[in-house]
Amino acid sequence: MGMDRREFIKWCSLLAVGSMLGGCRKLPFVGDAAKKDLPSLKMFEAEVRRAMSKPSRRMELVRVPMPGRLKTPGASLENRFGMAIDLDACDGCGKCILACIQENNIPLVTEDEAAKGRFMHWIEMRGGVPFMCAHCGNAPCERACPTGAANHTPDGLSAMMYKRCTGSRYCGANCPEHARKFNFNDAVQQGLSLKFNDKVPVRSKGVMEKCSLCLHRLQDDRLEVKAAGGVWRGRGVNTACAEACPKKAIVFGNWLDPDSPLVKVARRRDLYAPADLAGFDPSIVYMMGGK
């Protein structure tokens, strides 16, 4: 049976679409990534040990008050999330670093970068003290970002919109402690990435990244509480680093909630922050003495 003109055009269109889809499935990205051996957990553990073995500068800590309400327009009057790290309890074991890597799909780095002490870890040890982005209430990194990718949430998090990041690195340069990390590598292509957690996207080459205070956990909890019709204060949330600490030296919570475990423990302690961040109203502080 012959094929009329309309059927002929339809079949040609279907063949064209099919060839396009077939081409998509054969993109070099997929082929190259499939040829790479995925890294093992042991490789990440070894990198953490290597990072901790590198000499690091000590932080100068100064006394700061307990963080309060943010002064920025639109800030929440009920929530400001942060952490306090108990330096009397922390023994610098590094388990928080590994937990953060697994929770946030942080990639390995190349051998050359590792030799230079340049790791992607969002938490690092400085003089045996865990250090990460302090989520400053008046963050200098955010003011320097030309695209608005570095921004502040109403709940006190210094957040990143990766799709808006153009990799200018102005934010990293404007942070006095250089808490942000620039992603120099295509980690998937180079076999440096392992997706431990499906809830966190794997970042692309050419963007700045940093501690998110496990934002995805906060978002999940917010949706659950609001769906139930409650007032959200983040009381059911903890960060991966705090959960992993065997000494319970990292305490996460809501600085504006008097019933938060963070407030309950911090009000009895002396609070400190890195000297060059103290004037920027940090949400992550350190505790010593005063028990």
Rank of each mutant, 00 (worst) to 15 (best):
F184P: 00
R164N: 14
P146A: 05
R267I: 13
E177C: 11
W232H: 10
N254W: 03
P261M: 08
A144Q: 01
R203T: 09
R267Y: 07
C175V: 05
G234K: 06
C241W: 05
C145R: 08
P246S: 03
A242Y: 02
L262M: 07
G236I: 06
L223C: 12
D221C: 11
G230V: 03
G253I: 08
C245K: 04
G230F: 04
G236C: 08
H152E: 10
K247L: 12
V207L: 03
K210N: 13
R235F: 11
K199W: 08
T239C: 09
L256K: 03
D259V: 05
R203W: 10
D257P: 04
D257H: 09
A173V: 12
N185M: 12
P176W: 00
C241Q: 05
D186Q: 02
L213A: 11
F196E: 00
D259I: 04
R235C: 08
H178W: 11
E177K: 09
P261D: 09
V231S: 13
G206I: 01
C241N: 04
V202F: 01
L213T: 08
K195V: 01
N185A: 13
A159V: 08
K226N: 13
C145A: 10
A150H: 12
F252Y: 12
D221F: 11
C171D: 04
A187H: 02
V237P: 05
V225N: 06
A240V: 04
N183G: 10
P146Q: 07
T153P: 03
E177P: 01
A227Q: 13
D155L: 10
K226S: 15
G172A: 06
K226M: 15
L256Y: 06
G167A: 04
T166R: 12
R233D: 11
A149I: 06
A173K: 12
P146L: 06
A150S: 15
D270I: 15
V263I: 08
D270N: 15
S193V: 01
K210A: 14
D155Y: 13
H216T: 04
G253C: 08
G148S: 09
C241R: 04
N151L: 13
K163C: 10
A173C: 00
K163W: 14
W232V: 04
P154D: 09
M208G: 06
P261G: 10
N254H: 05
C145K: 06
G229F: 01
F252D: 06
C171L: 05
G148R: 08
N197E: 00
C145Q: 05
A240H: 02
T147Y: 09
K248H: 12
L213C: 09
N174V: 01
K248Y: 03
R235Q: 13
L262W: 07
A242R: 02
E209L: 13
V200W: 00
L223E: 15
C245H: 05
Q190A: 11
S193F: 01
V265W: 04
K248M: 10
V265I: 15
F252P: 07
M161Q: 14
C165L: 09
V202T: 09
C211N: 07
K248L: 10
H178C: 03
V237S: 06
V251I: 15
H178A: 12
C241G: 06
A240R: 02
T239H: 00
L223Q: 14
C171A: 06
R217V: 07
G167C: 02
M161K: 14
K195S: 01
H152V: 11
A227V: 02
A149L: 06
C175E: 03
V200N: 00
L262D: 08
N151H: 15
